[in-house]
Amino acid sequence: MHPLLQYINSYATTLLTEKDFTYFIGHFIEKKIRKKQYLLQEGDICKYMAFILKGSMRKFYVDEKGLEHNVDLYVENWWAGDRESYALLTPTQFNIDACEDCELLLLSRENNLKLQTECPSFNEFRLKLDELNQIANQKRITSTISNSAEKRYADFIERHPSFVQRFPQHIIASYLGITKDTLSRIRKRSLKR
């Protein structure tokens, strides 16, 4: 079974059939990008949301001092993009690049809207994902505001154990809102336990 079909059907109660999926997948563009290559750059309009079939990516912005701040990490079966730019057709403040070689399925805004009206399974799936995304963002904001660096790292490892091998330490530290040195100390302490 195609990974995207399996993914959609895992969230929808109205299942997408293999026959329907043949029509559905025709609305996506296959794309491969190499490690360190950009999917999206600051100032561009996000024309596609990308479903990751293989690989990992990160979303980040660069502040006025030239420092990178990682705001999202993505792996297989996750969607990558800037939702604000995609929905409002405004220039993005973010960059999205590949941390590993990636295989992607790109969905344009036009095709997204078309599939929402033509495909009940996709619309149900999209609404469920929006809900889960909102919950995850709320938890992340609360954690960033109220949890110690050690607790944030422990929660991160619990939720995403494979990320430690897939993303460099400085990217994980930035995502958690801590310095690389702080993360290094936390990791050393946790190894001693």
Rank of each mutant, 00 (worst) to 15 (best):
E103F: 14
E124N: 03
N123L: 04
E100D: 14
L73V: 00
D101I: 00
W79T: 02
A98R: 03
Y74F: 10
E124F: 07
N123Q: 06
C119Q: 00
S121R: 03
E124A: 07
N70Q: 05
W78G: 00
A87K: 15
F125Q: 02
E118R: 02
Y74R: 04
Y74V: 01
Q116M: 12
E124M: 06
G66I: 04
P120F: 04
G66Y: 03
L89N: 15
D101F: 02
S121G: 09
L113N: 03
D63M: 05
D82C: 14
L67T: 05
W79I: 06
L106F: 12
T117A: 13
H69E: 02
C102I: 06
S108C: 14
V75W: 07
A80K: 01
L73Y: 04
E103V: 12
L106Y: 06
T92E: 05
N95W: 06
L107Y: 09
R109H: 13
Q116W: 08
L67F: 12
D72G: 11
Y74G: 00
R109N: 12
S121N: 02
C119P: 01
R83W: 15
D97N: 11
W79R: 08
L73C: 00
S121F: 00
E118C: 03
S108M: 09
E100L: 13
F125C: 04
I96T: 06
Y61M: 05
V75M: 11
L73W: 05
F125R: 02
E76A: 08
V62I: 13
E64A: 09
G81D: 01
Y61A: 04
L104D: 06
D82H: 11
N70H: 01
D72L: 12
T117G: 12
L115K: 03
Q116I: 05
I96L: 13
L104S: 04
R83G: 14
L115H: 03
Q116N: 10
K114M: 11
N112A: 05
K114Q: 10
W79S: 00
D72N: 11
N123G: 10
N70V: 01
I96E: 01
D82E: 08
F122W: 04
R83V: 15
L107K: 03
I96P: 11
N111I: 03
E110I: 11
A98Y: 01
E76W: 05
R83I: 15
C119L: 08
K114W: 09
L115E: 07
V62E: 00
E110M: 13
N95D: 08
L106I: 13
E84S: 15
L113Y: 08
D72T: 10
F125M: 04
V62L: 12
Q93I: 15
E110R: 10
L107D: 08
R126K: 14
L73T: 07
I96M: 12
Q116T: 06
C102Y: 03
D82S: 10
S108A: 13
L88Y: 15
T92D: 06
K65V: 05
Q116Y: 10
S108G: 14
L73G: 01
Q93V: 15
D97L: 10
F94V: 13
